[in-house]
Lab assay of single mutants.
Amino acid sequence: LTVHVGNVTYHFDNPEQAEEWAKRMAKKYQGQIHVKDGQFRIE
């Protein structure tokens, strides 16, 4: 699973971990989480 934050990409084996990280990053950067094809993108 991949989480994109700006132009930085993080890889996770565990979906719960990826989702948790995406939520934390979205809160930190006050962005929206977009989920597409098993990838999380924070914008």
Rank of each mutant, 00 (worst) to 15 (best):
F40T: 11
T9D: 07
L1A: 14
Q39V: 06
K36S: 13
F12V: 00
K23R: 11
A22K: 01
N7H: 11
V35R: 04
Q39S: 12
M25P: 00
E43V: 14
D13M: 09
Q32I: 14
F12G: 00
E20N: 08
Y29P: 01
Y29W: 09
R24M: 13
M25W: 05
Q39C: 15
H11N: 05
K23G: 04
E16D: 10
H34P: 03
E20R: 10
I42H: 06
G31I: 13
Y10D: 01
Q39P: 02
Q39H: 14
K28L: 14
Q32T: 14
V8N: 08
R24I: 14
D13T: 11
R41G: 10
A26Y: 04
Y10L: 07
H34K: 10
I33W: 04
A18K: 02
I42Y: 05
N14K: 09
G38Q: 03
E16C: 15
M25V: 08
P15M: 13
D13C: 15
E16R: 10
A26G: 03
A22I: 09
L1H: 14
E19F: 15
Q32L: 08
T2W: 07
W21L: 03
F40N: 09
G38A: 02
H34I: 15
Q30L: 08
G6R: 05
Q39Y: 07
K23I: 12
H4L: 13
T2D: 06
D37Q: 00
D37W: 00
A26V: 05
A22Y: 04
A22V: 08
L1C: 15
H34W: 05
V3R: 01
N7I: 07
K23A: 06
I33Y: 04
Q32V: 14
N7C: 15
T9S: 09
T2H: 12
T9M: 10
E16A: 11
W21T: 01
M25C: 04
K23Q: 11
W21K: 00
I33C: 14
H11L: 09
F40G: 07
K23T: 06
Q30A: 10
M25Y: 07
K28V: 08
N7S: 11
F40Y: 12
V3G: 01
G31Q: 05
P15I: 12
V3M: 02
D13S: 10
K28N: 03
D13L: 07
Y29L: 13
N14P: 00
Q32W: 02
H4N: 05
Y10T: 02
E20H: 06
Q30M: 10
D37S: 00
M25D: 00
T2V: 12
K28W: 08
Y29K: 02
T9Q: 09
Y10W: 13
A22W: 06
F12M: 00
E43F: 09
V8Q: 11
Q30E: 11
E43M: 10
G31H: 11
V35W: 13
R24E: 14
A22S: 02
K36N: 07
K36W: 12
A18R: 02
E16I: 11
A22G: 03
Q30Y: 08
K27T: 10
H34T: 14
G6W: 05
D37E: 06
Q17V: 11
V3F: 03
V35G: 03
K27E: 13
H4D: 02
F40I: 15
F12K: 00
V3D: 00
E19C: 15
T2S: 09
E19L: 15
K28P: 01
Y29D: 03
N7Q: 09
L1T: 14
K23H: 10
F12N: 00
Y10P: 01
P15R: 14
E43R: 05
Y10M: 04
V35L: 09
Y10S: 01
